[in-house]
Computed example of a mutant assay.
Amino acid sequence: MRNIPWLMLGLLGLTLGQHFPDGQPQNLRQCEIGFPIDMNSSLRIDTMQSDFTFDGYDLPASGKFPSKNVFSFDNPDDVSLTGGVFDSTVYNIRQIGLFWGEGSSDGSYFSIDGKKYAAEFVIFLSEPNSISVELDFILEVSPVDNPNIQSLIDGFVDGNSKDIIMNTLIPKESYNGNYYYYTNSCFDVTFIVFEDTLSISEYQLNTLRPLTSHFFPTIKPIGNTVLYYRNGPLTTTTETSTTTTTSTGTITTEVSVATTPQSTPTIIDLLLFSTAVVVITNVIEILATFLVPGFRGFDEFGNSLIDFEPRRGVSFNSESFRF
Rank of each mutant, 00 (worst) to 15 (best):
D299E: 03
S185Q: 08
E300D: 13
F273T: 13
K115Q: 05
M48P: 04
Q262D: 10
E32F: 15
S199W: 10
V255T: 11
F316Q: 09
D51L: 09
S72Y: 08
K115W: 01
Q49G: 09
T190P: 12
T235F: 15
D46A: 05
D113K: 00
L43V: 07
I280F: 12
T252P: 11
N3D: 15
I280W: 05
L98P: 04
G10Q: 15
S111Y: 02
N40Q: 15
Q262L: 15
M166A: 13
I4H: 09
I284K: 10
N148V: 04
L169K: 04
I112L: 05
V314K: 09
D51C: 09
D22Q: 12
L211W: 05
T240Q: 14
F321M: 07
I222P: 04
V314E: 09
V70I: 15
I4K: 06
L139A: 02
N75V: 04
I251E: 03
Y228M: 01
L11K: 04
E319D: 14
I165C: 07
I45E: 13
F316D: 08
V157Q: 09
S256Q: 03
V70S: 13
T168E: 12
Y117K: 04
S304E: 10
V314T: 10
G249F: 01
V314W: 11
F301R: 04
G97P: 08
S72V: 11
Y91A: 01
G313E: 06
I267C: 10
T250C: 05
I131L: 14
Y181C: 00
N167M: 09
S72L: 14
T207C: 07
R230L: 11
N3A: 14
V255F: 13
T53R: 15
N3V: 14
M48R: 14
P36W: 01
G17M: 01
S80Q: 03
Q262F: 13
D58I: 07
T225G: 09
D188Q: 15
E285L: 06
M48L: 13
M166C: 07
T260L: 14
N148M: 03
N317H: 10
P25C: 03
G17K: 03
D113A: 06
T248P: 04
I170H: 07
L291G: 00
T197Q: 12
Q204F: 11
G249M: 05
G177H: 00
R312V: 11
F273I: 08
Y182E: 03
S88G: 08
I267G: 09
E202N: 15
L227I: 06
F124I: 07
P66A: 02
D87C: 10
E319R: 15
N303I: 08
V157S: 11
F137T: 03
Y182A: 00
F20A: 08
N282C: 12
P217Q: 02
S88M: 12
N160R: 10
